[in-house]
Design a protein around this nucleic acid. Structure first.
Ligand SMILES: NC(=O)c1ccc[n+]([C@@H]2O[C@H](COP(=O)([O-])OP(=O)(O)OC[C@H]3O[C@@H](n4cnc5c(N)ncnc54)[C@H](O)[C@@H]3O)[C@@H](O)[C@H]2O)c1
Ligand SMILES: NC(=O)c1ccc[n+]([C@@H]2O[C@H](COP(=O)([O-])OP(=O)(O)OC[C@H]3O[C@@H](n4cnc5c(N)ncnc54)[C@H](O)[C@@H]3O)[C@@H](O)[C@H]2O)c1
Lengths: 221, 221
DNA sequence: ATTTTCTTGTGAAGCATTTCACATATTTGA
DNA sequence: TCAAATATGTGAAATGCTTCACAAGAAAAT
């Protein structure tokens, strides 16, 4: 036959990616605690997962363990950080320097993890020009000029829900491909833009449901 | 036979519960826009889901639609709010009045949605006694006395990761059954306590992974 | 009244994810 | 050196979740 289907890129589930974050965090702690190796069982226990789940997740990306011994803590952590792309730093812009936005700018852990907030935007005249942790707030009007994908790789959106779609449209136009949105609204973006939503109300509603229905879900994430 | 297995309580998946939140939000918007009914197709489109998914989710809880017509917007919204348990208000305590904690207290939407923050705790002498939106910050030392499950039904935890487990132990001891945690740490709680984590780093790491791997997950939540 | 159109509700099929179970590799202890 | 213990990596089975597809009910059109 002339054309077999192209070797399709292996697709990883969202859950696996989230668990990689958990493993990464656990391994960081294990290193601090002085462990040199850890078994899938040990790792699983820390994150309330099964050993098989841990092994399967890691197996999507390679073989990192030693039979009879387990995984080398530091090596595995470094490997996961490569997989997640957090073995480098990311330049992040933050739009909306309100309650949540200010909390995010002040949060030093992001910086340490390599998510560097390097640009701030707002439309409030009292905020524009002001200084937050060494960064001067730019006027949102200049977003198109000042948001270069060469420079900024991710945008965190912390503006009111009512304006979020307009702003996201501009962000997309500027060529940004990754957005973390805090506004409780379903934003429309093209297929090649990665959008994640942080929806706190949803988690409170989940708790409400759980209390009212005394609910244990089939599968806990 | 003497004993058939008890009619097991229908377990609903986490995804379905989260989608109920989305439907609720969409229906609120639809009502404002003046729609009296909406089809599963219409609802699906707004939330980037399939009509079958919408119908299946709702079918777990009953039959709310009319064939040939769709679902009555207001009625369905009210029904979902009953299912989620948000047709009432919840009394919430917030522990840790720092960057995130302050943002949450100032957020009026929670109040509107029925999540009433009615008690604040911190261990910082400069914060204890101070007033946030009409609530005086209590000393964390008094948590055991002042956190009565009769009065407080949920706790939001916004303290440093290093102390989160100690505090959560006290919260559990006080009899609280629902906790929303912002600290990036895997907290241990008994099986009858519902715990949800809000982990922003995880979402940034997801975006990082997506950019590095040009990744579209198998299933988008 | 009757037909056509629309749309729900739901088993069943299809697909994704988790768990099982074991061959295999390595370490540990005797 | 060898046996026992440990623990990975992975097909296959089991479980869970989503989508299909269609019968059936209701509305709209004729
Ligand atoms: N505060 C919370 O605890 C919380 C919780 C959950 C969700 N959220 C959501 O996060 C978002 C931000 O919430 P917040 O409490 O920080 O609100 P906020 O009002 O304190 O901050 C919003 C900021 O966006 C700016 N802004 C408004 N319009 C803008 C525009 N067109 N361009 C640029 N900047 C603009 C405002 O000047 C302000 O600084 C909202 O969508 C809110 O629903 C907040
Ligand atoms: N700020 C952010 O944007 C952000 C983002 C993601 C996660 N988080 C997490 O949320 C949590 C809070 O972050 P933050 O930035 O608001 O930190 P913060 O230091 O500003 O606030 C923490 C608050 O907890 C109080 N606290 C400390 N120990 C306490 C104790 N034993 N009992 C009671 N209160 C105590 C402090 O006094 C302070 O008010 C942290 O776990 C952090 O990792 C924060």
């Amino acid at each position: 036959m002339a054309s077999d289907s192209l070797p399709e890129k292996k697709r990883i589930s969202e859950s696996t990616i989230h668990r990689l974050s958990l493993y990464y965090r656990a391994l960081t702690v294990l290193e601090k605690e002085g462990f040199e190796t850890v078994s899938s069982k040990g790792l699983a226990k820390r994150e309330k997962l099964t050993p098989a789940q841990v092994r399967k997740d890691l197996s999507f990306f390679g073989s990192f363990g030693t039979r009879g011994l387990g995984y080398p803590v530091v090596e595995l952590r470094d490997k996961i950080s490569q997989i997640l792309g957090i073995d480098r730093s990311w330049r992040v812009a933050l739009v909306g320097i309100g309650n949540i936005g200010s909390a995010l700018v002040s949060y030093k852990e992001f910086q340490k993890q390599g998510f560097q907030i390097v640009k701030l935007f707002d439309n409030d005249q009292r905020k524009i020009g002001s200084n937050h942790k060494g960064i001067v707030v730019s006027d949102i009007k200049n977003l198109a000029n000042e948001l270069e994908p060469d420079n900024i790789e991710m945008v965190v959106l912390a503006v009111p829900a009512t304006v979020a779609q307009y702003i996201v449209d501009d962000i997309v136009k500027a060529g940004i491909k990754a957005i973390l949105n805090f506004a409780p609204v379903n934003l429309k973006v093209p297929d090649d833009v990665f959008l994640r939503n942080e929806n706190m109300s949803m988690e409170l509603e989940y708790l409400s449901f759980a209390l009212v229905n005394d609910h244990i879900p089939k599968r806990v994430r």
